[in-house]
Write a protein that binds this DNA or RNA. Structure first.
Lengths: 100, 100
DNA sequence: GTTATATATGAAAATATTGTCATATATTTG
DNA sequence: CAAATATATGACAATATTTTCATATATAAC
């Protein structure tokens, strides 16, 4: 073992959250909700040009991990960015000189 | 389209880099190399209890994306953390209240 | 050159994620 | 209650990632 505390559980959690975010559509959702406070599902679908069912899957995925919150108001369900910290991840990558 | 510049290409790149990092073993590699400057492959394998061939795949993956650098010295190949910015990603997640 | 050691490679199997589609549920309106 | 609209769900197909294994390559020592 190495000199440091590289706990398996901590790394698993970090990877789990990173995976949740590591998808172009989900990143777009996060940025959108960072700008817009609260949005309905169809509104998000239209803004990101993504089919409703797929969008639901993505939204629920992010909600399950505590990254988004949601509330129903009549027919609509509104989502918002609950964990604003994740926006930093995106900013952070923009500072990287990683290659594609 | 939304009010903002949510460029597809930028999001694809961000997702691509996040995916590279979003794996417990690769996260462990990054932390290890953040602490240790330069390490040989077997050294990393032993520290992280991971089989050689699998480790090579991970290391080459990270190198390809510009996150690690490597150099051969005799029989050994040494890897180092080239893109230190990525460490911030891990720190960033630790500040999150995301659930597992 | 042969042997030993370290690392890389490629194919294939195992597993996980993503996308699609049909349909279910929830709510509102008439 | 029936119809319309918004969202969620679940199964399955498509695709991508991860792991394993056998083997290749590189270098060093003899």
């Amino acid at each position: 073992m190495a000199t440091t505390e590289i706990s398996q559980e901590r790394l698993n959690k970090a990877a789990y959250i990173l995976k949740a975010v590591a998808h172009p559509v989900r990143l777009a959702i996060l940025e959108l909700l960072n700008l817009n406070e609260k949005m309905g599902v169809l509104e998000i679908c239209n803004a990101l040009n993504c089919e409703q069912s797929l969008m639901s899957h993505h939204l629920i995925n992010l909600k399950l991990k505590g990254i988004l919150g949601s509330t129903r108001d009549g027919l609509n369900v509104y989502y918002w960015l609950k964990e604003k910290e994740v926006i930093k991840l995106i900013k952070c990558i923009e500072d990287c000189n990683c290659t594609m």
